[in-house]
Structures are given as structure tokens and as C-alpha cells.
Computed example of a mutant assay.
Amino acid sequence: MTHVSRTARRASALAAVAAMLALTGCASTATNPQDPLEGYNRAVFSLNDAVDRTVLKPTATVYKDYTPGPVQTGVNNFFGNLSDAWSGVNNLLQGKGQAGMGDLTRFAFNSTFGLLGVLDIASEAGIPKHNEDFGQTLGVWGVPSGPYLMLPLLGPSTVRDTAALPADIGADIWKYKQPDNWRNIGNAVRVVDKRATLLDATSLLEDAALDRYDFIRDGYMQRRQSQVYDGNPPQAAEDKDADANSQVVPQPVSSEKQ
């Protein structure tokens, strides 16, 4: 499997090229103001979908069907515990001191009493879990999301979230695991485990959505907006973000989809 950090660097480079095309108004005939790069994004979506259908989804299905439940739970807890440290830092950067300290306490508690995070002792003790990343932090600081981007292998993103990827990747504790083969195996297991948790949602999506690309894009943009404002986005902020996105590319004269 391609190393996560190498994939992210390639994705960031592609996203930068896409953003440059957006700024020059040369990259799209899309009518959705949040998705001026729809042609590019749909092509990447098709690539990602092909990889998922042929490799990732079958592997995740075997993993879910044949790996004992306690092992799956332990794997999920282990990597979730590693993410708590960076989540705590982001909460502190966002000015949410109580949540930030709670995340860092979770990390310390589970890393010791929870056998390096395999057991989620902190949740049993009533310490809530948060999921914060640097893209959300930039959003709290007032950075608009920018156009929607579909990244190769990494999936849905935006210009803001893609710009935040280097910080998120650099803060991943597992990135520094030695030797390299253990780190690579862990990365593969983490990806498969995460995909396995989404199998049921994928089945529902395939049954319900007429256009899966539109469904995923709209759902992602709404979810990210909700995450930035902790589930209560002000209407003024939504309008401001939409205006910033719509100004990236001049709107086409025709309203018909090319």
C-alpha cells in the first residue's frame, strides 16, 4: 500500500494545481458554487471508486467478517487514542480549553491504564471523545473552506482542509513509528479498519443515492461546516463561506450542466 504521507504529498500537489486552475477560471463549467472543479473532482471520484470496489472494500469485508470483534475494537481504540492527542491540541488552538484538556487526559489515561489505547478506559470513566483536526481549527479562525476537492485515494476535502493536511500528517504519532515495516503495516491496518466501519453506510448510500458524487459532496460540505461550529453553524457564517466559494470562479452563463 502506498505510504500515507507520500500519498498526501501527491494529493496536496494535485490540489494546488486544481486551486490554481480555479483561480484563473479555466478549470470548470460546473454550476455549483462550492464545486467549481466538478469535472476534475468527478474524474478523481471515479478513480477512487474503482480502487475501493476492486481492493479496499473487498479487503475490509473480509476483515470485518473474519477478524474477531474484540480485535477490531482494540485496533479502532488504539488508533483513536493516538488521534486524541492532536485533537486536544486543536481544541486548545480553537480556544476550547476544557475539551482540549479532556482529550489530552483521555490520551494519557488510555495510553497507560488502557494498554496503549487498546482499551478505551477514558470513555468508561465519562471523559468525552472529540475529533478535531487542523482544517477545523483554520475554519474556527475564520479561514473559508474554499472549493470542494476530491483528493486521490484520500477522498473528499476542500482547499482549506487540503492546506491543513501537512499539519495533520506531521502530528500523527504513528508517523514516527520505527521500524518502517511496522509503521507501514499499521497504516494498512488502520485504513482497512476504518473502511470496515463504513461498510454499512456504503450499502445504504448505494441504495439511496441517485448521484453518489453529489450526495457525498453535499454531505461532506455540510458535515465540515457543522464540525467547525460544533453542530451549530450561524447563518451569517454559512452565507459568508458560500460567498467566498462562489467568488473563486466566475459563474457560467448557461445553467445547463456540461
Rank of each mutant, 00 (worst) to 15 (best):
G114Y: 01
G231V: 09
K64M: 04
D230I: 06
D239T: 14
R42G: 15
L210W: 11
A27E: 03
Q94R: 14
D180M: 07
G146P: 04
Y220S: 12
Q227C: 07
G102R: 05
M20G: 11
P147R: 09
N76I: 04
N110M: 05
P58A: 07
L23N: 11
L47W: 08
W141G: 11
Q72R: 15
A27D: 03
S226C: 09
P36A: 11
T29G: 10
A236W: 08
L199P: 05
D84G: 06
T202A: 13
W86L: 13
A60F: 00
A122D: 03
T61M: 02
L154V: 07
W182R: 13
K96Y: 02
S28D: 09
P250E: 00
N77F: 00
S203K: 15
S157E: 01
L153A: 09
N48A: 06
L154R: 07
E38V: 11
T2H: 12
L14Y: 05
E206F: 04
L56V: 14
V4R: 09
S46M: 15
F79V: 07
L104E: 04
G155R: 01
G155T: 01
Y66R: 14
A60K: 00
A196K: 04
F78V: 00
S255E: 09
F79M: 03
S157P: 04
T24L: 10
L154K: 10
V75I: 15
V118Q: 00
V71T: 13
N32Y: 04
T61W: 00
Y148P: 08
G39H: 10
T67L: 12
K240W: 12
G155Y: 00
N131P: 02
D161A: 08
A125W: 03
R9K: 13
A16V: 09
Y63A: 04
R9G: 13
L104P: 04
R183V: 04
S46H: 13
E124D: 10
R42W: 05
W86S: 15
T67P: 06
Q178N: 07
M221H: 09
Y66L: 14
G80I: 00
L82Y: 03
L37D: 08
G95A: 06
L151N: 13
D120T: 05
D120E: 06
Q227G: 05
P33R: 14
D211V: 07
A236V: 09
K129Q: 09
M20T: 14
A188S: 12
N81D: 03
A18V: 05
V55N: 11
W182Y: 12
V143E: 14
P233L: 03
P252N: 05
T137Q: 06
Q227A: 10
D84K: 05
D241C: 10
K177Q: 15
P70K: 11
